[in-house]
């Protein structure tokens, strides 16, 4: 793949919708299931992923000519691990309460397939600024997915949004149970597929 011809806004929008890391690419599913009992968790982990993705992409794009092709993957891993350590230290120091809940997953970002994949597919072939926008798109796409699932589960499961009681009762306790994460993700993926099917049908009938 040669350097991308997409504009910056296209890169960001693709990351959020067409190439959404959770619903479309189906990568980094673990936090989408495990951490979406509330919107807050989704936001926090989303920020961490955004940070790691953007900084790793930029780093790799900047040093792409310096990386020896035979040690490409170890260099990626090292870069990601470094930025994960940095964000892990920062979160642990400044938001200790929230960190307690997402701590394990922040460390696990290092094993998320989405980040390595973007480095391999995009950052090592493109300029720093394009990688920056691609990283932002992917990061926000991930955050968007996390927040959507978190919204549904928090509203239905505990009747709250962002910790505030909005419904005053708990419609379906089932949704905060661990297992419900899988159902939510499955059903929402199906909805994304449905939208695509309808969209394609419209396009066909128009032409």
């Amino acid at each position: 793949m040669a350097a991308t011809k997409k504009t910056n806004s296209q890169l960001v929008l693709d990351g959020i919708f067409l190439e959404n890391p959770i619903f479309r690419l189906a990568l980094s599913m673990c936090p989408a299931v495990g951490l979406t009992t509330s919107i807050k968790n989704g936001l926090l982990l989303g920020t961490a992923v955004l940070f790691v993705q953007v900084f790793s992409s930029c780093t790799i794009a900047a040093i792409k000519n310096f990386i020896h092709p035979r040690i490409r993957i170890p260099t990626y891993t090292l870069t990601i691990a470094t930025w994960v350590t940095v964000i892990d230290l920062v979160l642990a120091a400044y938001v200790p309460d929230a960190y307690k809940q997402v701590g394990l997953f922040v460390k696990l970002i290092v094993a998320f397939a989405i980040i390595t994949m973007r480095l391999e597919m995009f950052a090592c072939k493109n300029s720093v600024s394009a990688s920056w926008w691609d990283g932002i798109g992917m990061g926000f796409g991930f955050m968007f997915g996390m927040v959507t699932i978190g919204f549904v589960r928090e509203l239905l499961g505990s009747g709250m949004l962002l910790g505030y009681d909005v419904l005053g009762f708990k419609p379906l306790l089932f949704f905060v149970l661990p297992a419900a994460g899988f159902f939510c993700v499955g059903i929402m993926m199906a909805m994304f597929n449905y939208v695509e099917v309808v969209y394609n049908r419209r396009k066909e009938s128009k032409s």
Partner: peptide, 11 residues
């Protein structure tokens, strides 16, 4: 059809 593949696997 919309559930085929990944969605049904998740359920």
């Amino acid at each position: 059809p919309t559930y085929r593949g990944l969605p049904i696997a998740f359920v």
